[in-house]
Write a protein that binds this DNA or RNA. Structure first.
Lengths: 348, 348
DNA sequence: TACTTTTACTAAAAGGTTTTAGTGAGTGTA
DNA sequence: TACACTCACTAAAACCTTTTAGTAAAAGTA
């Protein structure tokens, strides 16, 4: 073992200096051998390589980062790590980054835009090579500052016109419009909209899609059919359940919608249960459509009609943009709009 | 704006040198002001602080890390980012780390132990201050090497006796034993065991708990009642469904178990559906118990009896251990065993 | 007064790389 | 022979901090 014990019990890692000494060259030469940045004879190269192996030398990434101003770390800022939508996107993003030699610093801002701003700055201070910003950021001033500072940023599930950052997002507006079309074709006329918080961009987009679809089909939006529950204490399952239950058990039948589009599968599943308990049949009395095509939707009664979105694709596309950005390549399509797919099952 | 444009269009960040110049002191003094490592007069301090503000100076974390050998980055290595069990633990771990000024590098090894080893090394090469290892690592040699290199490592959902790393885990063996006790008390005698892959440590522990519970209650384990499906193509929902369906539709009634303990809620939910379709009533004909208490368990028919584990707590405990380790404080209880709780509902 | 001690700073090394300019030897060309 | 050029390498600066040793002045002590 050529590594030396240090005071605190940790092993002192060998550095370029050690390698250089052992191979009787300078550190410059070692660096050139490693990075192939200068012509070096076969003999010297072999000597250096042998020394590297003998000393188990590994370059110190911190020193490299300091010198080259590249850390090969990307920040990933998202509202919630456990979310069924965000986490698959993150997973595929991390995987792509990994393949290109990058690591990912994951930061969750827990839906708090105050914290989001703080975390953005912290990431920038950590000298990441780029930041993926998932969904959030109402703070245009912050983004403009980041742009000025030259921080590569990719937006996912979000687009901002004020700054020139590439983005990936699903076509929520169009898709939900199509859902309304579908419901209309099936004969539903009084279509309701069930969502948690309208604060989140994609949910808001879905509302706009709903509006567009309704108008296009000559339907009027009854404000009494728009169910938005901001109660953060519940999960979507009980949110959908309690909300729909309270409405459908107290309202006169003729004042109720004949279909519900829910912005989340869990919301929809909760709603279906509430409908059943209130004595309504799905889809005969009330049609229900969810969103996300989570595994369980194929296992509830009735099987839920829903919308599928390719989260893995979103992660890949986000990485493609990020990679181009940090490599300072130019980007052909800076704003990717990904399609979604209606999965027709039995609930409408 | 005191920041200067650089060739590539990025703004050149101001450094200590700039601050020092502007405040007419040396960089040493600036450092001392920032870190309060030496007595400095009020006047000088003010001058430095003013310069810092004027130049919008932020310390370069890379340079700090190089000098102090501390990056304030922790690696989090887990099998799968999207997993319903791992991700809440990760979420709470990240949150705790954040509060102590640390960032978390998330790496998923996708259940591949080959990749796990590679990622461990990559993390170590990235100069993280510590690594949280979630669930995996059969490679004792790797762990021993890490120990020798002085890398602080905390194990979650896993314990290894060969090396001296602290750990947090749930008491799977005991809990599943109690589940068997409960089933026995309710009159079930032919208790089956349904699991995906026995490769994962906690699933294996649950099998051991099942075995212990059975023996304790004087019951014999019928190998025909042990259902382990390694098919990685399916999700747990369809895995449980197809497996149980194939068994219960082809086997003679007297050769079937009267209860099934499933190591995952989704597995259990899939199984319940299969049982229903095969003409069995739950819990009258067959009792079912799941594991994890995911939200949907309270929404299926019948409501699922299951086991709850406090994942947030696990994340917190893991961080506590990690923090003590990187701070070189000594740890009173290096191997935390967290309790789990049986949630009694209607499926048995 | 003569001394130690404290205060408030400075100078410079150290941390481990990459990168540029420089150097001496050898090769090629005219 | 004289010149340019390539080759194979070295020396040293640069990246931006922290930290230690040193210093001069002021304050405290006997």
């Amino acid at each position: 073992m050529k590594t030396k014990k240090k005071a605190n019990g940790k092993l002192k890692k060998s550095t370029m200096v050690d390698v250089a000494k052992r191979a009787s060259v300078t550190i410059g030469t070692v660096s050139h051998v490693i990075n192939k940045t200068a012509p070096i004879t076969k003999e010297t190269t072999d000597r250096v390589l042998k020394a590297i192996k003998a000393l188990n030398y590994k370059p110190n990434s911190i020193a490299q980062a300091l010198r080259t101003r590249k850390s090969y770390v990307i920040g990933f800022l998202l509202p919630d790590v456990t979310n069924e939508f965000y986490s698959p996107v993150m997973s595929s993003f991390i995987d792509c980054a990994y393949k290109d030699g990058y690591s990912v610093l994951v930061v969750s801002y827990q839906y708090s835009s105050r914290r989001e701003v703080i975390e953005m700055d912290r990431l920038a201070d950590k000298n990441v090579d780029g930041i993926l910003l998932f969904n959030g950021c109402d703070d245009i001033a912050l983004l403009e500052r980041m742009e000025k500072e030259g921080m590569p940023i990719v937006l996912a599930d979000r687009r901002v016109d004020e700054v020139d950052f590439p983005s990936v997002e699903f076509n929520n507006v169009e898709t939900v419009g199509k859902v309304v079309d579908m419901l209309y074709k099936k004969g539903y006329r009084k279509i309701g909209f069930l969502s948690e918080s309208a604060r989140l961009r994609n949910l808001n987009d879905r509302y706009n899609g709903y509006k567009e679809g309704m108008t296009r089909n000559g339907l009027e939006i009854d404000p009494a059919f728009v169910y938005i529950s901001e109660d953060m204490e519940m999960n979507n399952l009980v949110r959908g359940y309690t909300y729909i239950k309270s409405i459908f058990e107290t309202t006169d039948k003729k004042d109720l919608p004949d279909a519900i589009f829910a912005t989340t599968d869990l919301l929809a599943i909760g709603a279906v249960r509430a409908l059943k308990e209130a004595g309504f049949r799905v889809p005969q009395d009330v049609g229900v459509v969810g969103f996300d095509n989570i595994a369980i939707t194929d296992f509830v009664e009735p099987k839920l009609t829903t919308v599928e979105q390719d989260k893995e694709l979103m992660g890949r596309e986000a990485w493609t943009l990020m990679k181009a950005l940090v490599d300072e390549k130019n980007i052909d399509v800076p704003h990717k709009i990904l399609p979604q797919k209606i999965i027709k099952r039995k609930s409408c």
